[in-house]
Design a protein around this nucleic acid. Sequence first.
DNA 1: GGTATTCTTAACACTATCTTTACATTTCAT
DNA 2: ATGAAATGTAAAGATAGTGTTAAGAATACC
Lengths: 234, 234
Amino acid sequence: MNARLSILVIEDDKAICSFITAALNGNGYRTVAAFTGREGLSLAASLCPDVVLLDLGLPDVDGHEVLQKLRCWSRIPIIVISARTEEQEKVRTLDMGADDYITKPFGTAELMARIRTSLRHSSGNFPETVYKTLNLEIHFDKRTVRLNGELVHLTQIEYQLLTLLAKNSGRVLTYNFIMKNIWGPYTDNNNQILRVNMANIRRKIEQNPAQPQYVFTEVGIGYRMRENDDFTPP
Amino acid sequence: MNARLSILVIEDDKAICSFITAALNGNGYRTVAAFTGREGLSLAASLCPDVVLLDLGLPDVDGHEVLQKLRCWSRIPIIVISARTEEQEKVRTLDMGADDYITKPFGTAELMARIRTSLRHSSGNFPETVYKTLNLEIHFDKRTVRLNGELVHLTQIEYQLLTLLAKNSGRVLTYNFIMKNIWGPYTDNNNQILRVNMANIRRKIEQNPAQPQYVFTEVGIGYRMRENDDFTPP
DNA sequence: GGTATTCTTAACACTATCTTTACATTTCAT
DNA sequence: ATGAAATGTAAAGATAGTGTTAAGAATACC
């Protein structure tokens, strides 16, 4: 059911590269190889892999530069592989945003374990307890929704859907993500049920459902909820 | 303003323990020490520290058991410290939910770097992944584009196109590369559709589409997006 | 067991988006 | 300068995606 996870290997030494990709394939991952930093950056952008393995000793661009460029726009887990064992080098690399630093030589089993650990990290987390904007308030701990101070009654699914969006407010959630989250991983790709629920929610909280203020449609992608007011960036 | 982060050190060797806590204190962390597994578990539960450092060689309970028990109820980052270097041991420990595995002897600088990395993972306060230049901001993880702070609505293809360029900012992407990336490998070599989309994007984000500030045309080659000037290391 | 609520499915109207066409404008070599 | 090639723009038809309604099925509640 779940699509296989894909891993981008950025490594100039073809022998090592094919060794690594073979090991990854053997463990059920899809792999894509890049032999230069430039190539790696483009592929990362177009493929959006689940993990990046980055060898620091590249011919064209400095590996650290690749790391830096990637971190400008992505939080994909990046596991750096390097021959250098000096502590300063490790510190520098980790502080530039690498998720792990493995020194050569290393065993494939350890590599696989560290990949699994990275994947664990990249799956999300959100702590907020109140969502509040315009005239809408959601208290997650009380499980209440208020519009202009008045309690709004939502059904189970409607509430789940609204809070999923609220906890990720400002961010577009894909139809698929929402479906999987609420109807479980084995639902088909039919959004009809989602559309109906959204229409019902809008009827309850929007003044004019045709011009929503709270939940917006991103055609072809999914829904996005208006950003939470008491959002305090770091 | 920010409360200092607290770290629980579970380590039976008092010499090593005081060495580590001293280093942590020197780096601004609050530390609590536990000399047995049992103690460590109860302290973790009562304190809810931000990170746990766990030595596997404990006298009373097996270190792996501590790890397992902790993971039953908590997702606190756990960094395991161990004298054992065998790969199987590392794999087992990581797969039981440890966030990192450091072998003795290790330097304090590396330990600190790995703690920072773990903290980044847990608190979700990853530096936001954005493209930013002049008055334009693209938030990749939210899938939003802002011009002068205002949300700009882009269609699916427009967004794909803009982010492909942004993720490769400063570099020329050929028409062919872009076409293949967005319309798939089997499209013909007709750029018309690409030109239309670029015109639409420019109408939405450029002040004067005839003299673009963000996406430049490289005649005969492709498009290039103004370089991201946002990079701020952690 | 009957009633009310909620969930799901299907049909259809409506809207946004995509693609194509036609033509204007710019660029560059001669 | 001039013309051919490349690029930009506008508009309209085709397509796909979304919202809405309503009716039957499933579930919970007396």
